[in-house]
Design a protein around this nucleic acid. Sequence first.
RNA 1: GCCCCCAUCGUCUAGAGGACUAGGAUGUCAGCCUUUCAAGCUGAAGACAGGGGUUCGAAUCCCCUUGGGGGCGCCA
Length: 503
Amino acid sequence: MTQPARTRFAPSPTGYLHIGGARTALFAWLYARHTHGQFILRIEDTDRKRYVPDAVEKIIEGLRWLGLDWDEGPDVGGPYGPYIQSQRLEKYQQAADWLVEHGHAYRCYCTPDELAEMRAQQQARKEKIGYDRRCRWLSPQERAAKEAEGRSWVVRLAVPLEGQVTFHDVIRGQVTFQNAELQDAVLLKADGFPTYHLAVVVDDHDMAITHVIRGEEWISSAPLHVHLYHAFGWELPVFAHTPSILKPSGKGKISKRELTTPDGTTIPVMLHQYPGLGYLPEAMFNFLSGIGWSLDDHTEIYDKETAIKHFDLKDINPAPARFPAEKLDWMNGVYIRKLSPEALHQRLLPFLSRDLGIPQEELAKDERLKVLIPAIQERIKRLIDATPLVDYLYVDEVDLGDPLSLVPRKTTPQETVTILHAIIDELQAVAAWDEATLEQTLRALARTRGWKAGQVFAPIRQALTGKKVTPPLFPILVALGREESLRRLQRALRILQAHLEQP
RNA sequence: GCCCCCAUCGUCUAGAGGACUAGGAUGUCAGCCUUUCAAGCUGAAGACAGGGGUUCGAAUCCCCUUGGGGGCGCCA
């Protein structure tokens, strides 16, 4: 058995949770649960300029919807709190001071304007872009002078000038960078807030995180973090840089607040958009876990417990993946079909209520709807797909459109009038109004009169719903009841006849 | 431009030197079923990016090329 791991998901509240972030969180959660360790939620709100007020709330909502839970976090507390970085500022400031005192970092007095100017010059001379370390070599006297001027300063990491750093990544193996390629990154900003680099390292160490699981966009700053761990004399955590999820087009990774178009259709990339479209959280979980990881060589549908049992970081595929949107729809359909009719009924209520403008309580009691649930269950991929399959129940008069739409293929309008008459006669006389009896009766009618079943069914479908595509007829007849069904059939017949009598 | 990561059917993936005639899924197409549409079942087409090595043997190891992704901020 592997050692219990402490993993964390550390989103920045500069926006909402997107698919890629959710999948990374899911992997970190899976690994914590797999090892019977802990999963921690930490909020990295060190960028005051880009802070989005309700982002934390939305992110938490999204993670919970997905079915993730955390042992420690801003909302649940824990022994290593606080779990919000803006509440831990002293820790970072102390850490930065310590680094400066011990020669691992230095104060830099350059202003943003000076830095911009420096970069512009580097660009003009086609030199490598990056901080030229001018403040690293300042003499004590020069420093004293800068401070006397009252200039503000940032703390920068003094990276080794030569040699290389190597770290081990569970899903990529050894990764090596030349120190000469590294920047003297800012650790503490002029406003006293830490940058990501300082804050993650300090917090991951403080919170006893054993596995740093994050998106692959962090690979290039990992060497900086390794140097920080070394400077502090701390033990390195295990790194796992998760592959990014690309747009369905394959061009670029999925980014915040962007809707992507594969071939005309738009696909939401923010997690919070999915519940409202009628995707089930258990389907979403299953689906997301299957991007960059697979249970085995043939299992597609599995629950959380099974995933936990099989999951391992080292099995993550390092290659970036496109977002396979079509597969999500298929999988969501699978999960919808797995629901009991009662459960599906419950989950459908908010969507139908919204689309039909009918209070949920009213719909919940509607027996007609219940009759139709099993029939629509295998016909929808998302919860929002149900509305057009039941909306005809809730209209006073069906919109028949062109009266000739009542006429089936290979049938004349006159013949259709005859068929409708026969249907109405038959249904008025039918002994019991249940699916079996109705089917028997109508099939018998077709047989004795020499009509194809479709010639009888098509006009009924059209008369009752005004649609060409609907769930099966008999549940609809039962749902509407004898009286309403006949009323709609008679009205359809009248309209067709009237149409035929016109010159 | 420089650095890093990556490379199996259209797409998501299995594959850790011989078990590969490269497996599963999705999507597509066809057939069956059938009252429409679905669902279901059957079947088909469909991939190791290219080139060099290493080895008795390579999808699997190494190198190069190409292609994709990421990074190069007082953003995370």
